[in-house]
Amino acid sequence: MASDGVVVEIGKVTGSVGTTVEIPVYFRGVPSKGIANCDFVFRYDPNVLEIIGIDPGDIIVDPNPTKSFDTAIYPDRKIIVFLFAEDSGTGAYAITKDGVFAKIRATVKSSAPGYITFDEVGGFADNDLVEQKVSFIDGGVNVGNATPTKGATPTNTATPTK
């Protein structure tokens, strides 16, 4: 695992066909100046998982989280898009600690492993708008004895992609 920078880890949970599971997305290594904004994309298989919603985690402190935390689910493109932009203008609602960034709610549709993997990152910046190093650890849903650990090695991303 990367020793510096922010680590975004997609949790690994267990479920069975027809059940709804909650998959946490963790941030670790949050910089001392916090995270003022970030955007990134995960990939998944809508034939295996139906993403039914995404909720902000406990490290989102904006009293009205829909102003700073936004997501979009595109089953036709097989992606989930995340956007966080601190909304106070003063840094008061920045992410300042490690913990759960988001909770992905999904219904298991198939007995195949439900991988959720890193696809791309736009950027991560602290309260001074300084770009942060970030790496990703894939996860998803274990169905029966299947284990979604494909790509469990962190993917280092030093520069934003478009």
Rank of each mutant, 00 (worst) to 15 (best):
S88N: 07
T155L: 10
P65V: 09
P148M: 12
P63Y: 13
E22S: 07
D128H: 07
T153K: 05
Y115T: 09
K133C: 04
E131T: 05
I116C: 08
K67H: 15
P75K: 03
G29V: 14
I59C: 05
G34V: 08
I116P: 01
F82H: 09
D62F: 15
Y115R: 09
D39I: 00
T20M: 07
V100Q: 09
T20A: 10
T117H: 12
N37T: 00
G57Q: 15
P31G: 14
D126F: 00
G34C: 02
V108R: 11
L49G: 15
D126Q: 02
P65R: 13
G91S: 13
A2T: 08
V21R: 09
V81W: 01
S32E: 15
D45Y: 05
G89M: 03
T159Q: 14
F136N: 14
A2P: 08
G89A: 05
E9F: 02
I59A: 13
E50P: 07
A102Q: 03
A152V: 13
T96L: 08
A102M: 13
Y93Q: 14
D76W: 02
T96W: 10
P113Y: 15
D70M: 15
K97D: 14
K12Y: 09
D87Q: 15
D62L: 14
D4A: 06
P56Y: 07
Y26S: 12
D128K: 04
S135K: 07
A146M: 13
G57D: 06
T71D: 09
R43M: 04
V21E: 14
L49I: 04
V8L: 03
D55A: 11
N156L: 11
V41C: 02
Q132W: 02
T159A: 09
V21H: 05
A152F: 10
N64M: 08
D4I: 14
F136C: 03
Y93R: 15
P160L: 12
T117C: 15
F136D: 10
A125Q: 00
G114D: 09
I59R: 14
K109Y: 08
V30T: 06
V8R: 00
I137G: 09
T155Y: 09
K67R: 09
K67W: 15
Y26A: 05
D119T: 09
T96V: 12
D87C: 15
R105D: 09
G18N: 07
T71C: 04
G11A: 08
N64Q: 15
V7C: 09
V25K: 02
F82T: 01
S110E: 08
G89L: 03
V6T: 07
S88C: 06
V61P: 09
V61T: 08
V100W: 04
D87Y: 15
T147F: 09
D126S: 04
Y44Q: 06
T19H: 12
I137S: 13
N37W: 00
I80M: 08
T153C: 15
K150L: 13
S135N: 14
E9L: 08
V100G: 05
D126E: 01
A36W: 00
P46W: 11
P148S: 04
P24Y: 03
T107V: 12
I54E: 03
D55I: 06
T20R: 05
E9W: 14
K78R: 12
I54C: 03
R43S: 05
A106G: 14
I35M: 05
I79D: 02
E86N: 00
I137W: 10
N127H: 01
A146N: 13
K103N: 07
C38R: 00
S3T: 03
D128P: 01
V143M: 08
D62H: 15
G151W: 11
I95M: 13
I60A: 15
L129V: 06
V25D: 01
P160N: 13
K150G: 08
Y44G: 11
E50L: 06
T149Y: 09
E86P: 01
G123T: 01
D55V: 07
D70S: 14
V30N: 15
R105M: 03
P113I: 02
A102K: 14
T155R: 09
N145F: 15
G144D: 08
S16K: 11
G5D: 14
N37V: 01
K12M: 14
Q132P: 03
L129P: 01
A112P: 07
T153S: 11
N127D: 06
K103H: 10
Y44V: 05
V21M: 05
G139T: 02
I137P: 07
V6D: 10
A146C: 09
A36K: 00
G122P: 00
I52E: 12
G140P: 13
A36Y: 00
T107I: 06
V108N: 08
A36F: 00
G140I: 14
D87E: 05
K33N: 11
L129I: 14
S68E: 03
K12G: 06
G11L: 06
I23H: 13
I73K: 03
T161G: 08
I73Y: 04
I51A: 05
Y26K: 04
F84S: 03
D87T: 15
F69M: 03
A94N: 02
S32A: 08
I79R: 01
G5Y: 10
V108D: 08
V30H: 08
F118Q: 10
A85T: 07
P63C: 08
G123Y: 00
P24A: 04
P56F: 11
A125Y: 00
S88L: 10
T147H: 08
F27M: 13
I80L: 04
N127A: 02
G99E: 12
E50I: 03
D76A: 04
N142Q: 09
L129Y: 15
C38M: 01
A112Q: 11
T161N: 13
Y44W: 15
V130A: 07
R28A: 12
T153P: 12
K109I: 09
G99F: 05
S32P: 08
D98G: 06
I59F: 14
S68N: 15
T71H: 04
E50G: 08
T90D: 13
V6Y: 01
T20L: 06
F118R: 04
I10F: 03
I60E: 15
G140M: 15
V143H: 12
D70I: 15
P56G: 10
P75D: 02
R28D: 10
L129G: 01
T107L: 07
I80K: 05
D87R: 15
E86M: 01
E50R: 07
Y44A: 11
G57A: 12
L83Y: 00
L83A: 00
L83M: 02
N145M: 07
P56A: 04
T90I: 15
P154N: 11
V130Q: 09
I10Y: 04
V61W: 15
F101P: 07
E120D: 05
T66R: 13
G89F: 03
P65N: 12
I73L: 04
V21F: 13
T157Q: 14
A94V: 05
I73F: 09
E131V: 02
V81A: 02
D55C: 13
F42I: 02
